[in-house]
Design a binder for these strands. Structure first.
Length: 449
RNA sequence: GACCCUAUCGUCUAGCGGUUAGGACAUCGCCCUUUCACGGCGACGGCACGGGUUCGAUUCCCGUUAGGGUCGCCA
């Protein structure tokens, strides 16, 4: 029988990066085994259950490319879904829960208590066989020694998480529960519930948690906790996926960068690590840079335009070929698209401000005649392309008996305002002779001291 | 308070009784270079502690410490 796994988030308004990894590991296992990946929305908390909150989950998974075989197609709980084990929203499954509660009640396995319904939990320790952690013998805590029974239906009629989670896993035919280790202790309750329904529980695989760099629990407001952050900061889903795979799982052969397809081939449950991992933003940025550098020109262009738009720069007012050429000089230079507006904003803005420190170094009196000479040499150029610009600049430096850098730094600063950036020869070609000369002229007039 | 999980460079990890403890990110040098980035070379840096078991422990067992998780009419 092919495995059936599920990702069962509750719509809280954001998708936690740890949740994203849980989804990823479930997806990887399904793809590795040829099984089925189910998405189920645990929206029993009506107060938080909004379309927007569900869309955050749906869009997050879609962005990562973790497509589900069964589950909702839209954020509408009563809307369409795919798969024949639905509904895939818990808010639509009340009859199932009612029926299961009745069954427990009629068998004397649950009882009413102060308006709520409690499950008769076994008093003996529960053995939890876990594919990642191994066999865990869960004993009762001191509180549970007093009363091991737990509420499965609140006095307002709402069934609680432990109960609905088990009922759904049972009825949806889930064979492997892959989830965060924060659920390990409670698995005893789930196993007891499955047995009460007369079935064997699924296999469990509790994966380690992702912690902050300082080792504390990663919660909503912590940097990088929300998947949306990566979308907003111009990360690539392939980089995020790759990095997430490396947290708690290892390809074991000193390979760091690998595609999801490669991971699908190698991934399996027993090799998942047992200890928590701290989130290393720097390493993610490194991977991001690796993927960013390899980006095809048209995708780089598309994402670049988007990044500028987000920064309030409308590149549509410029000629498409100009924008494409401009962005092309940035390929291989930046790591995240969030850097782009600062890195290459000079292409799309007339007023440029000079980096003060660089200006102090480059816009000095002895450089003025040198830059003037360069501008005069540029003036004679019939073709203003990278090759002739380079040749002219080098020839001028030779005539002046100086290193090329002495001309390059003030010129770059005059044209871009920045001490660093894309290849100078190429960016000047993109800017064009007219703008280049105007900017050099302006710097000469106003800024050399 | 009780119960559960975990412990290799700062971080992610390889290791599964005998290794000069390997790789990657980060950091620091040098090289390349029009800046930055890339790339190349090198350096720094680790088996939490204490007992066992064993001819021999990073590796197996116990304890301590530390970190994380759970014990809800939250999910």
């Amino acid at each position: 029988m092919k495995p059936r796994v599920r990702f069962a988030p509750s719509p809280t308004g954001y998708l936690h990066i740890g949740g994203a990894r849980t989804a990823l590991f479930n997806w990887l296992y399904a793809r590795h085994t040829g099984g089925t990946f189910v998405l189920r929305i645990e929206d029993t908390d009506a107060a938080r259950n909004t379309h927007e909150a569900v869309d955050v989950i749906l869009n997050g998974l879609r962005w990562l490319g973790l497509h589900w075989d069964e589950g909702p197609l839209t954020s509408d709980a009563t809307g369409p879904g795919k798969g024949d084990r639905g509904p895939y929203f818990q808010s639509q499954r009340k009859e199932n829960y009612d029926r299961r509660v009745e069954a427990l009640l009629s068998h004397g396995l649950a009882y009413e208590h102060q308006g709520a319904i409690k499950f008769k939990m076994q008093r003996a320790p529960v053995l939890i066989p876990d594919l990642v952690v191994g066999d865990v013998l869960r004993k009762l805590t001191d509180r549970e020694e007093v009363d091991p029974d737990f509420v499965i239906v609140r006095s307002d009629g709402q069934p609680v998480f432990h109960f609905v989670n088990v009922v759904d896993d049972l009825e949806m035919g889930i064979t492997h529960v892959i989830r965060g280790e924060d659920h390990l202790s409670n698995t005893a309750k789930h196993i007891a519930l499955f047995r009460a329904f007369g079935v064997e529980p699924p296999k469990y695989a509790h994966i380690p948690l992702i912690l902050n760099a300082d080792g504390s629990k990663m919660s909503k407001r912590d940097r990088g906790a929300s998947l949306t952050t990566y979308l907003d900061e111009g990360f690539l889903p392939e980089a995020v996926n790759n990095y997430l795979c490396l947290l708690g799982w290892s390809p074991k052969d000193n390979v760091e960068k690998l595609s999801l397809a490669e991971v699908v081939e190698r991934f399996d449950l027993p090799q998942i690590l047992r200890h928590n991992a701290k989130f290393d933003f720097e390493k993610l940025v490194w991977l991001q840079g690796e993927y960013c550098r390899e980006l095809a020109p048209d995708r780089f262009y598309e994402l670049g335009v988007h990044a500028f738009a987000k920064a309030g720069v409308d590149t549509n007012t410029f000629d498409t070929n100009y924008v494409k050429a401009a962005l092309d000089t940035c390929r291989g230079k930046i790591k995240t698209f969030a850097e782009l507006p600062a890195y290459a904003g000079f292409y799309f803005r007339d007023e440029i401000t000079y980096d003060p420190e660089a200006a102090k170094k480059s816009f000095v009196p002895e450089n003025k005649p040198r830059v003037e000479k360069l501008r005069a040499a540029f003036a004679k150029l019939a073709t203003f392309d990278a090759t002739s610009i380079e040749a002219t600049l080098k020839a001028t430096a030779t005539e002046l008996g100086i290193k090329v850098g002495v001309l390059i730094h003030p010129t770059r600063l005059a044209v871009t305002g920045n001490p660093n950036g894309p290849s100078l020869y190429h960016l000047l070609e993109v800017m064009g002779k007219e703008k280049t000369q105007a900017r050099i002229e302006r710097a000469l007039q106003t800024s050399f001291s």
